[in-house]
Simulated scan of single mutants.
Amino acid sequence: MNNQELKRENARLLQQLSTVCASMEANRIEADQLVFPRWDLRVRAQIDSLDERVMAVCTFELDCLRFDETLVERCSGAGKDPDQAIGSAAASFLFGMMAAVITLMRYESVLQLTTEFGGKERKWNCIQSEVIGMGQPLSTDHRLDYWNALKGLLPQVLGSRKITVIQVYGARQADGSVNAECRVNGVVCRFLSEAIAAVVQTWDNSEFVSRRQIFLLEQDRTHAALFPYTKAQIQTMTTQAMRLFQACDTEEKLNRYTEILSRDLNDVSLAEQFRFFLPEICAENAFPELPIDEHLSLNTPDQTTSVTIFQLTAVEWMKEAVYEGFKNEDFDNELFRQLISLSSLYAEVHSRKQKGEALKDHPVTLQFPVSNRFKLF
């Protein structure tokens, strides 16, 4: 499919979405976007691939001021011809993410959850999409309940974002082999995936079967404690923090890194996160075979607090900014090597190699040393 044909098919896909969504909410197409004026919600759709097996893969992006960042959903569909394959992918999006977002916009949540993070209680309104299935019916379909499999674990991934997106996929082959994945804001969460695998393992199918579902959790406006920075602000600060590392060409300057950055940012807690996580992000990229525990310890002089990486909103945004900076050659290889050498992961790799241990043998748990002035947010 050439560029002109792809552009035409993308326009048709957007028109299909508009037509179906019109029965749920007034919308219009503007500048290659589907716009819902009442909420200033904008949807972009793109066909990524359409192969000879008549399998379509499409990416859908949703933006709204109520979100912390763009919501991204990738859907595939199969059919006897291109129209049917693209329509199948569109249906998966419409009855999954799109329907859930519209329900969220209408404040029609039916599930609630209460969590505590950083000493503050938060209440969450939860939306669950319909279950999107492929393959044969299951005798247990009427009581398939991903929510109850996850809800006891969800407080471990909920921090201070406005909205957290949980994407669940479970599949079981005819031979009983299981594929289960649970993503938190687009990142695979191993311990939630294991909970989904336990559900999928009980299915009684004799042919391939899969079930997908999406959960949107939004902090209740009357009990909210939101992350105080935008994604754009964290990305700008990440560049600033990386430049400061680059300027620390002596041990004396490096020892004053957190002091200088906390003064520049007027936030000691964020400065301490940059000092610890920027080296670890580079080392994680350099040693992908080293498994890292999703739980980590925050160690103050007085106590130890266990959190998960998913609860630290700034860290994933830092990671994106770091990768983008190296990709665009804003940062050089010398800085990459410098940061790796400062990481605890580098020390762990060195230790395992000295002992003759394989890096992949067991996960490493990050120990994040913080001052008494540090606050979780």
Rank of each mutant, 00 (worst) to 15 (best):
N2M: 09
N3C: 01
R8H: 12
N10S: 08
R12H: 12
Q16C: 03
Q16F: 11
L17K: 00
A26T: 14
E30K: 11
F36E: 05
P37C: 07
W39P: 06
D40P: 00
R44I: 00
L65M: 10
E69I: 01
G79I: 04
D81N: 15
Q84R: 11
Q84N: 03
A89H: 09
A90F: 04
A91P: 00
L94M: 14
F95L: 12
M98N: 08
A100T: 07
I102Y: 02
R106L: 08
Y107R: 14
V110T: 15
Q112C: 06
T115P: 10
E116I: 07
G118I: 06
K123Q: 14
S129H: 10
V131C: 12
G135C: 05
Q136D: 12
H142E: 13
A149H: 11
A149D: 06
K151S: 10
L154N: 08
L154C: 09
V157F: 08
S160A: 15
R172G: 06
A174V: 01
V178T: 09
A180Q: 06
C182P: 02
L192Q: 12
A198D: 14
A198I: 02
V209Q: 04
R211Q: 06
R211Y: 09
R212K: 14
I214H: 10
D220Q: 11
A225W: 11
L226C: 04
T230G: 11
Q235T: 05
T236E: 15
T238H: 02
T239S: 10
A241W: 09
M242Q: 07
F245V: 04
A247I: 00
D249Q: 12
N255I: 00
N255M: 11
T258G: 05
I260M: 10
R263E: 14
L265M: 13
V268N: 08
E272N: 07
E272T: 08
R275H: 14
I281Y: 08
P291M: 10
D302W: 03
D302V: 03
T304R: 13
Q311K: 15
L312M: 15
V322G: 07
E324I: 02
D330F: 05
D332A: 03
L335D: 04
L342R: 15
V349G: 06
R352H: 04
R352L: 06
L359I: 07
H362S: 15
P363V: 07
S371T: 15
R373D: 13
K375D: 05
K375W: 00
L376T: 08
F377K: 13
